[in-house]
Design a protein around this nucleic acid. Structure first.
Lengths: 114, 114
DNA sequence: CACATATACTTTGTATTGCAAGGTATTTTT
DNA sequence: AAAAATACCTTGCAATACAAAGTATATGTG
């Protein structure tokens, strides 16, 4: 039971959302996630995830020169990725509702205005 | 990317919350979760989880006779379990905020009243 | 009583995924 | 030339939801 486990299947969606907003490269992504309040993510988390998403054709990548190091791999959403993001948001809303209901001991359909 | 993955580390907390409300046995738990809006959970999910939580001393169990089958194993929270539940709720709030911020593209500290 | 059915719990194995650790390559700075 | 920062990749591990198959107990039916 840790924060780590709770990110499973959720980090994907967050990354899709960030990429949709703006083309991003991996190294930059870790920083962005922190700006949104998340803990700091290591590279062992970010890169494999991005590569997995590319394999599933949710994102595409293009290499671009950097002014301060090796070339960056910029990722952007594919149409399939946009669809996946939309589906993720639905799943997330659903999950949120259910968990919050459990924590407040409200059955579905019950309206329990405190 | 599935709903399954998104439950990791969250289902624990939900079960703790349900048990805190009222002593519950495994078979019954699956039904309860559905009442809260979740999909139906198989036994391969519920039982191992309960046993794991007992191993971690978050819950205790007592066998009681049933009128309609073999004895039921009723679970209730230990003080450690209550603490864990409280910590889970904090983690959950935190996660919820962060994910929702990402989905709305609001940085932390930014107030973005539409 | 024998047999089916529903209830109730256990065990084993698998797939997914976040993450640490170690490795490689490129650019700027000293 | 050497060091440091940037940027990406690979391997291996641990946690966990879940399916599948197994075991045992109570009730109901012929």
């Amino acid at each position: 039971m840790s924060t780590t486990q709770m990110l499973k299947g959720i980090l994907d969606g967050c990354i899709l959302a960030i990429i949709k907003d703006k083309e991003v490269y991996g190294y930059e992504l870790a920083e962005k996630l922190e700006e949104y309040g998340f803990q700091s993510f290591g590279e062992g988390t970010i890169y494999p995830l991005l590569m997995r998403m590319q394999k599933e054709k949710l994102v595409t990548s293009t290499l671009r020169k950097s002014t301060a190091g090796p070339r960056r791999k910029y990722y952007s959403l594919t149409p399939k990725g946009e669809l996946e993001l939309a589906e993720f948001m639905e799943r997330w809303d659903y999950l949120q509702s259910n968990v919050n209901r459990v924590l407040k001991h409200e059955f579905k359909g019950e309206d329990n205005h405190a």
